[in-house]
Design a protein around this nucleic acid. Structure first.
Lengths: 137, 137
DNA sequence: TGATCTTTGCAATTGAGTTGCATTACAAAT
DNA sequence: ATTTGTAATGCAACTCAATTGCAAAGATCA
């Protein structure tokens, strides 16, 4: 059994061929991707399948969702023991308005804010927008 | 000249009747609103006009944009001297996954993160997701 | 093998966001 | 006050991401 197969099973996701390929792709690229990105990569697969795969990954906590200024929903692989909960498992992302790429900064955590009374946090989405190294030069 | 008229003019926005009404609505509700919210309120006005009004407000720095987990673009009035730039003028927002409302927390600022080399920040979008007081009880 | 459940593919739909163009309202100049 | 130009608004149509229903294919288990 491969490490990726184990990773799916540890999140209670049936390791089908399709899912393995998508997980592998996300692990290789190490970036934040959209459904369209998957479509470009997996031209043979159906859009719906890719869509539902991402949704399954999200529901089982294998990936986290990123909402950047592009308005397009993006996804990135979680770290091994991530539960996607605020504040511990939430980190900063960076969206480049020029190339429209989004980056994960797992080492940049989030403050444990003192919220107004009765606001109960469970998750978070933190995106800094600007210019990435490729586009800054 | 009213205070709202001045507010538009200080941002170089022609204070038309439509814009005044929308600004007034946003100032009154004090919440983060979407284009659909405006449509519900201004049933007589055209969708496009409302859309372009929000866009004008955004381009002139009168409102800031919020991207929460709903995937719908939302807008909120800026404070008086806001320039919408990271890190000083960016604050935390709260999205309630239950009622899908979004709140501004202007008193909760953002850390001045030490980004990886050559990442140049200009703006930010910080949203904590959870349950709001109305939905927590 | 047969029965059942899950996954995948196809087709169609929804809804937010956006654009082009015609019309109207406004403001400046004469 | 009338003309003239510019900006704002309304209407219609379109794009595209996201989503759903249903049928076909594949996996699982008795």
């Amino acid at each position: 059994m491969t490490i990726h197969e184990k990773r799916l099973q540890s999140r209670d996701i049936q390791p089908t061929a399709m899912r393995m390929r998508i997980l592998l792709f996300m692990a290789e690229t190490k970036s934040v991707i959209s459904l369209s990105d998957l479509e470009e990569k997996f031209t043979h697969a159906d859009r719906t399948t890719l869509y539902r795969t991402l949704k399954t990954f999200l529901e089982h906590g294998l990936v986290h969702q990123v909402n950047d200024a592009s308005g397009i929903t993006k996804y990135a692989l979680c770290s091994e023991n991530c539960t996607c909960s605020y504040p511990d498992d939430v980190h900063v992302h960076f969206y480049c308005f020029s190339c429209e790429q989004t980056f994960c900064f797992p080492h940049l955590g989030i403050p444990n804010y003192d919220l107004p009374e009765n606001f109960t946090p469970s998750n978070g989405n933190f995106v800094i927008t600007g210019s990435c190294p490729s586009c800054s030069s």
